[in-house]
Design a binder for these strands. Structure first.
Lengths: 245, 245
DNA sequence: TAAAGCAACTTGTACAAACAAGCGAGACCA
DNA sequence: TGGTCTCGCTTGTTTGTACAAGTTGCTTTA
């Protein structure tokens, strides 16, 4: 592990432990540098991690302050439903309901950076959390990854992990659009809710390490089952609000 | 403007302009350093900005690649409904429907870091976008800022901006919980939708520059009116998925 | 008494240098 | 032909230094 990551970890632990309660000031860079016997630049890099996590606020001239004390998840947990579930102490399940190939629509072609009409693989999965159905996933895979996806166990828990182990594919980058929609007939039946009841929708496009789009998906969470959490500040943020659709 | 900000801007423009299309490689750090006549560290800082914005992907050993070409909004737009609306070419409106003081509930006291039972100011606002009602805001303000809030024009467009001009308050940090809920009777009436129809809910707590909680709010968007957009990667992210409530 | 200004402190920016670590392509070998 | 290895390239980490810029509290001044 890098030196700055170690220092960031120590500081994070101290914050989570309550050594630096919310609202308190963090030691100065000079203080931390001497305490960890590191250069100031290294300490700055460590603190930058906590700032990015939203645990610490910083502004020029003033001591840094603690904004939060909850450890946030890493992206791996975010992206892999199963791994996220495990990390927060829940049991994830999955089941493929449908899987077939068809030509891509124009909008899918754009999102997956393929030629319109090129064949894609469509997979519908129902995901459970502690046995309860909470999520309907409708995923469109680019054809170059389709064979590997079709070989997966229909009840496979973590698609992300299986694909990594099978072909070394890493889901590295994601773009997400989040809004609310009414449950359609199929959504309602699968999730055990009434038609028209509220669902949290997450449309995402996932890209490999090399920048190649892998999949785009329409995920619908039953209301009350899952909440997205975000921390941000006037500087540095990745959340955007958009009008309409 | 800082040197690295200038370089970041140039690169961002080049990407938006299409000089480096999605999937293309960015020049190496050495190349950029000589082109901008800057030290490598400065170039790294510039590129880090684009990486944080999700426009560029990076991994050790390989050239950086372009992931997206849309300019994302700054946090000011995120947080101030009116300013965000203006920046995307829409007209925002607001109207205070109710405003009264009452003792804080225990959970509000925790979120605002005040003593339970201490008086707070509750304001209900209906927000419009191009004349259409799209958002019901139920905001709880800590008592120390309440007088300034009560002095605001009920039809005030941007609360954030007015408070900044009036008392120099800056909304610097925010924590957000996003999920979907069914419209209650009041929500439905105000937004002109049916009871039980889906709403996108954003619960947020806002903190001043100094780390002092200012307000917490329950904002409900009419389905289809607004979408949240997020970019992230395996490294560095601020989005967390949570189970239940 | 209140405003203005100064001084110490703290974080931000920029440069330079050296080494570590991962990637990719071509060379090499079985 | 197919796998392995090596080497050059590129990004990541760390240290050190110097100065810029914002904050805060104290002092001075009107």
């Amino acid at each position: 592990m890098a030196r700055y990551e170690h220092i960031a970890g120590e500081l994070r632990d101290a914050i989570v432990r309550g050594d630096y309660p919310i609202g308190a000031q963090l030691p100065t860079e000079a203080e931390l540098a001497s305490r960890f016997n590191a250069a100031r630049g290294t300490v700055r890099q460590a603190v930058a991690v906590l700032v990015a996590e939203g645990l610490v606020g910083t502004r020029q001239g003033a001591r840094r302050i603690v904004l939060g004390s909850e450890r946030s998840q890493s992206f791996a947990e975010l992206h892999s439903f199963a791994q996220w579930a495990r990390s927060v102490g829940h049991q994830a399940g999955g089941l493929v309901l449908d899987s077939h190939r068809r030509p891509s629509t124009p909008s899918e072609a754009v999102r997956l950076a393929i030629t319109p009409g090129e064949e894609v693989l469509v997979v519908v999965r129902l995901r459970r959390l502690d046995g309860e159905p909470v999520l309907v996933e409708r995923t469109v895979y680019a054809s170059w990854i389709a064979p590997a996806v079709e070989k997966l166990d229909p009840a496979c828990e973590s698609v992300t992990q299986e694909l990594y182990e099978a072909v070394g594919l890493v889901f590295a980058y994601g773009e997400h659009l989040i809004d609310a929609v009414a449950a359609g007939a199929e959504d309602a039946r699968l999730l055990g809710v009434r038609r028209g009841s509220p669902l949290l929708r997450q449309r995402r496009t996932t890209t490999s390490q090399e920048g190649r789009p892998v999949e785009c998906s329409d995920d619908r969470y039953r209301a009350g089952s899952v909440t997205f959490s975000i921390r941000n500040s006037t500087t540095a943020n990745s959340l955007v609000r958009r009008a309409g659709d």
